[in-house]
Write a protein that binds this DNA or RNA. Structure first.
Lengths: 332, 332
DNA sequence: CCGGTCACTGCGATCGATTGCTGAGATCGG
DNA sequence: CCGATCTCAGCAATCGATCGCAGTGACCGG
């Protein structure tokens, strides 16, 4: 309430403003005894440096934009949660920016936050990040992307799509499945493409028919894929389906349920993401887990490294398998 | 990149700083022609007022904290999304604050954002908001709570729990159910209590046995309730269950699935929230819908009204029914 | 022709911090 | 005992905007 400023502390401690300032931000530049005294006085007055004034002067704030297409999607929700924690640990405050899938929004948010002297930004894109577009914004070069990006000039963190798909295919083949279809869909840009490519590559390699049930986007991929599946003859129908991500898997299972097709009894379904919610789905979803918690921390790390050393590295994490109840041995 | 400031515009337009400032923030106080000229020059230079400097001087920023216990929970996700949109419409920028259920965090975030001159805050509590606690923070009195609150000195927006539960019970009775159980659980403080109370009241009124399957909290209410249910004899077992919220319903259905109990064939399950995700669950969830989108807009409205007129009203919205596939006529 | 209004606009202090520069005093070597 | 070096704290400008106050010129009525 008291709104105590740096001058109040200075007056009370009998020193100059600048000494108080240094006591906080450059400890080595002030006598230890003086510093202790200042800090005690500050403490007793309940003083805290005004982040706005500090940011204005320093031209650097602790506000970090997290740009996601849709916070309703649990993937971004989990990402946001871990990022908020990781950010807080390092003294940053996460600012949530929801683009709703509109590409222009990303840049709008970025410029808006750079006016608040955000030191960097985190972007989790839904569609291909237009890097050229990103370059148009000042903050654009200080961005970490949570997705793979082609010819990236910015740091990125992703999970290894090929390995993830391999894990899924292995698991299903281990259960006896030979006709394994794939449903593409809503997800990160390149990541989504990578997963599809990995599936196709693996299918060729293992001499399996590559069945793409639906490669569209939007909220009803699951619907369309299910529709397609139920109209297949018994021979051509896949015994298992890998979905591009957990949400699509949920969608698909739900749509199959509506059509009376039971998972995993009639067809096995796997997801990709490892959302916590998968453990609460019906049936509990077998899926390839991305280490989302790690991704949050790593993204912040990458950002700090970028600021300090100008180093833009690309971290690719290893996925693992979360075997639950949506996959079973091939029927009969 | 150019970092153009108000002085640049002033110099270029041949006027004083203050005129430029007024051209933007107090249009009526400056000659129309001058203003037009200033605005054009500003436009051509790509000038935008620096929000930090503005906030510092005005002692009011456009940063609005949204405090939620868990952004992973789609309820808060949907809330965040609509709030972000509503806030953006009015020129505010939402700052996401995730407490992880720790009460102290709420106040920490509130003070932290008040130092950034946040004009108000939105709190979606997981447990009883300790209003006395809230009063300890300066921003505490300028908060809108998305939940019912007892003896609230702050504006609130909620949905009518009693009406919602009545809707649910009506729907189930219409399908022939007479043994309708209830599972309490993770959710807003008073809201959660209200729903339970409404259920109990209605049970007494309609002369139905009140069966509370689980009244605990935490992530495994569903588990426990399912466990309890499968151990009941055929006669005592409820034919339908109302869950305190959608997440609990998902949990429960999943846990029942693991135990081989099919929904809605053997038991009907209803949720409460109306999450979009319910339409993608298996089976698609019948639920009482809260107008979450409205709640976001209303919360912002209430906040602005509070600032302007000091008026603290309590909005109670009407829920409606979303009939999908998780409820069916009572078996046999 | 003069004093009074009115509509603008300029001046400069201010918001709360940071930081380069300067100078005071302590320390030290010769 | 003196000058050089070093440590530390004060001074004042600065970040980019806002706003109360004062000044200027136009306009009007008497």
């Amino acid at each position: 309430m008291a709104e105590v400023s740096i001058d109040d502390v200075a007056a009370r401690a009998g020193v100059h403003r600048s000494t108080v300032s240094r006591a906080f931000s450059r400890p080595e530049a002030v006598n230890a005894a003086t510093r202790k005294h200042v800090l005690e006085v500050a403490e007793s007055l309940g003083y805290r440096v005004n982040p706005l004034a500090q940011a204005l002067r320093r031209r650097a704030s602790n506000l970090v934009p997290l740009i996601v297409p849709d916070i309703t999607n649990p993937f971004y929700g989990e990402l946001a949660r871990t990022m908020a924690a990781a950010a807080a640990d390092r003294g940053y405050q996460l600012v949530l920016c929801v683009t709703g899938g509109e590409v222009a929004q990303t840049n709008a948010y970025l410029t808006s936050l750079q006016e608040m002297y955000a030191p960097f930004g985190i972007v989790a894109p839904s569609t291909s990040v237009d890097l050229d577009e990103l370059q148009n914004v000042a903050l654009g070069s200080k961005v970490v992307v949570v997705d793979r990006v082609e010819q990236a000039q910015v740091p990125t963190v992703t999970v290894d799509s090929a390995e993830g798909i391999a894990l899924a295919v292995d698991h299903l083949r281990g259960l006896g499945h030979r006709r394994i279809a794939y449903v593409s869909g809503i997800s990160g840009a390149y990541t989504s493409r990578d997963r599809l490519a990995a599936y196709e590559g693996l299918a060729a390699e293992l001499d399996m028919p590559a069945m793409i049930l639906d490669a569209g986007t939007g909220p009803d991929v699951g619907e369309r894929a299910a529709e397609r599946l139920v109209h297949m003859t018994r021979e051509e129908r896949p015994t298992a389906v890998i979905a591009a991500n957990d949400m699509v898997a949920f969608d698909l299972i739900s749509a199959l349920g509506v059509r009376g097709v039971s998972v995993p009894d009639e067809v096995s379904v796997m997801g990709f993401d490892g959302l916590e919610f998968g453990a609460r789905f019906n049936p509990r979803l077998t899926t390839v887990r991305q280490p989302i918690a790690d991704m949050g921390v790593i993204a912040i790390d990458l950002a700090e490294k970028l600021l300090k050393d100008g180093e833009t590295s690309h971290v690719v994490l290893a996925p693992d398998l979360l075997i639950r109840d949506s996959t079973a041995e091939v029927p009969r």
